[in-house]
């Protein structure tokens, strides 16, 4: 596969004092790929993701996102990525339409684009009836789908999703993954962390982090073969069992 590399990291590390949250992680992610980023609580997933998004400055190592350097070109990177954090982070006191307008606006979409893409998004998610309602009044599953759609409103090259389906029911989770697949088909790279091992099976490739290091990285099939187990859950157990750090 000679695909374009959209994320490339070499020995990327983050230290908080003596604590090494991320220890020299190196990996590559290709265009249009759904990349699962697994690990126990406290393994360093969120820290790694924040470095890639430009929210957190790395202590050492190198990385490029969409061809831009994460030390010097964070603003260029920010135009080309979407991010959905663990916490729901649309404005609950703005309506669905107002959130779309606001985030579209600050990414520099024209009034025309905001209207058009906003309408498309609302139709796609079936939110037409509640478009003028405050986001805070929507059920969690709807909010998460909306947050994902807003994060991809400006057609980013990469979307970072930090545990996007935590606390969401199985049906909505399935719908959420439909959205992820649709984005991937459009050529958007999806970088996703999750604790659900069935979701790990949906990913093209997964990496598993233990104690700040990447211990395994391959397709779900290959990983299962390598560890001679039947499911990703067992692969995860095999690796995470040796973890020294306590989860949070």
């Amino acid at each position: 596969m000679e695909a374009e590399k959209v994320i490339q990291t070499v020995d990327l590390s983050k230290h908080f004092g003596d604590f090494i949250a991320c220890n020299a992680i190196s990996f590559e992610v290709f265009k249009g790929e759904i990349f699962g980023f697994l690990g126990a609580n406290g393994a360093g997933k969120t820290t790694a993701m924040k470095m890639l998004c430009g929210l957190s400055a790395p202590s050492s190592g190198k990385a490029t996102i969409a061809g831009f350097d994460i030390y010097k070109q964070t603003e260029a990177i920010k135009k080309r990525i979407g991010y959905m954090s663990q916490k729901f982070s649309l404005y609950e006191d703005l309506s669905v339409l107002e959130n779309i307008e606001f985030f579209g606006g600050i990414y520099g979409l024209s009034q025309q684009e905001i209207k058009q893409r906003g309408q498309q998004l609302i139709d796609q998610l079936g939110l037409a009836d509640v478009a003028k309602n405050m986001v805070g009044s929507l059920p969690l599953g709807w909010k998460q789908k909306l947050a994902f759609s807003v994060a991809s409103l400006h057609d980013p090259e990469i979307i970072f999703l930090d545990e996007p389906t935590g606390g969401v029911d199985p049906v909505t989770r399935r719908q959420f993954w439909d959205l992820i697949y649709a984005a991937s088909v459009r050529g958007i790279t999806v970088f996703v962390t999750t604790h659900y091992m069935d979701e790990a099976e949906y990913c093209h490739r997964v990496s598993i982090m233990v104690d700040g290091e990447i211990k395994a990285l391959d397709t779900p099939e290959n990983l299962k073969k390598q560890f001679q187990v039947d499911s990703m859950e067992d692969v995860f157990f095999e690796l995470a069992r040796g973890a020294q750090r306590l989860g949070d």
Partner: peptide, 13 residues
Amino acid sequence: EIGTIEQINVTPI
């Protein structure tokens, strides 16, 4: 507190 600032910080604002 509600985390929206993080969402703002990943935008090109």
